[in-house]
């Protein structure tokens, strides 16, 4: 995979970030957030070393707090404030917080895994709207998931993975749940060949 002409496979998370890749992990609680620390800490984690939040190795607590507060407002994250333990938030609000943290810095490419799993309809719709808005601004979004309805609704193109390989790629206009389902069983390749 390449971003702006550079292959990303062999980079560290930090270097990938610098290239403009945003990522939202599948497992919010273990990979995404630090549940025992304030929410604000998790929200600035990937960018803590940047000018926005620190200078010469010293943190800028006011900027961190202001950033977290702004995002809480913009994304309607329901919580008592930026200093609350991240682990105290509900799943939907955590997902919004992670989304806010990645989108705040205009990624060129965003990779999301199971973006709305376990969320209520309101939060899911909110996140879908954000994706569409990002797409309108020219951000490439890769959604990894199993919820076919969601993928059909969001995607321009859908690639089906089978046994670790891409079994086939469809424009979403051509894609139906039935066709995707067939490809997911590994039948996709023969169909394509035919």
């Amino acid at each position: 995979m390449t971003i702006a002409g550079k292959t990303v496979a062999q980079f560290t998370p930090r270097e990938v970030q610098a290239l403009g890749l945003g990522r939202i992990p599948e497992d919010r609680m273990t990979t995404g957030l630090v549940t025992n620390l304030p929410l604000a800490d998790s929200m600035v984690l990937p960018r803590i070393g940047t000018e926005a939040f620190s200078r010469n190795g010293l943190l800028n607590p006011a900027a961190i707090r202001a950033f977290a507060e702004a995002q809480i407002k913009a994304y309607d994250i329901r919580c008592p404030g930026p200093m609350v333990r991240a682990g105290a938030l509900s799943g939907g609000n955590l997902q919004k917080a992670l989304l806010a943290r990645e989108l705040a810095f205009d990624p060129k490419v965003l990779i999301v895994s199971q973006p709305t799993r376990g969320l209520d309809i309101g939060a899911a719709r909110f996140i879908h709207e954000k994706f569409l808005a990002m797409r309108a601004r020219g951000c490439g979004i890769i959604v990894i998931g199993e919820d076919l309805e969601e993928l059909l609704m969001l995607s321009d193109r859908i690639a089906v993975m089978y046994e670790g390989r891409i079994a086939g790629t469809l424009d979403s206009a051509d894609a139906t749940v039935a066709r995707l389902g067939l490809m997911m069983t590994g039948a996709g390749r023969t169909e394509e060949a035919a």
Binding site: T12, P13, R14, Q17, R23, P25, T30, T31, G32, L33, V34, T35, N36, L37, D41, S42, L45, P46, I48, G49, S54, G57, L58, L59, P61
Partner: peptide
């Protein structure tokens, strides 16, 4: 109040999230 301190705290609480966060 320092970035090193921040990294120490995050690493201690959740090394996986720390690594993921760069």
């Amino acid at each position: 109040r320092t970035t090193l301190g921040f990294r120490i705290r995050v690493t201690g609480e959740n090394p996986e999230a720390a690594r993921y966060g760069g």
